[in-house]
């Protein structure tokens, strides 16, 4: 019978995808995050297509400012990759430096976003309530901002741990996991920047 045993059957099967538990879990978690943003972005597309009026790009939002902010977030992804690469090689000084830079870029991104919100709310009268454009703008970028905040906290914890010398050549899985999350948040921003600001 085809289901009977053969000698090759009993070899170990752990990690058939070549990915350990934590990394697999992170990838799966990011899948669910993709679906969360898909729900939001899908709703945004439906609402915008169904709306009779919509401001033209740049009419309300400050595209150059957010363009700079986008660049800063992309830079933070670069420093994150570097941090992981140095962790892989076990260079303590450079892990610390790049984790700190990533953290710093993240904070700058959030600060610029906060300034942007403040100006839009108080100077341009754009509120989340009462009008659909404000609703979509604040909630989409706001949910992303919360994700960046979570990432910034995680990177901060990594940085502290790197100061304590927790990451060695052989043991630096948290750097990779947070890195995956950080790149995902970055990628979502590029999509949001495109559909909320540029189009």
């Amino acid at each position: 019978m085809s289901h009977a045993a053969t000698a090759s059957d009993v070899k170990g099967l752990s990690h058939p995808l070549g990915v350990n538990n934590a990394k697999l879990c992170m990838w799966l978690f990011l899948c669910s995050e993709v679906m969360f943003f898909a729900g939001l972005i899908g709703s945004y597309i439906v609402l915008r297509l169904g709306s009779l009026t919509w401001p033209t790009p740049g009419e309300i939002l400050n595209i150059p400012l957010t363009g700079v902010n986008t660049f800063i977030l992309i830079c933070s992804s670069v420093t994150m990759v570097k941090a992981f690469a140095w962790a892989h090689m076990g260079n303590q000084t450079k892990i610390k430096r790049h984790l700190f830079l990533t953290f710093l870029f993240g904070v700058i991104f959030l600060s610029i976003q906060a300034i942007e919100y403040y100006k839009l709310y108080h100077h341009h009268g754009l509120h989340p309530s009462g009008n659909l454009y404000g609703t979509c703008f604040y909630i989409l970028t706001g949910f992303h901002g919360c994700h960046v905040l979570g990432g910034v906290i995680a990177v901060f914890v990594l940085w502290i741990r790197s100061l304590l010398g927790h990451f060695t050549k052989g043991r630096h899985a948290p750097v990779e996991l947070v890195g995956l999350y950080w790149h995902f948040v970055d990628l979502v921003w590029i999509i949001l920047f495109t559909i909320v600001y540029l189009i």
Binding site: A5, V10, L13, S14
Partner: peptide, 8 residues
Amino acid sequence: VNLRAPGM
């Protein structure tokens, strides 16, 4: 995915 016994 990762914790099946050998042969499973």
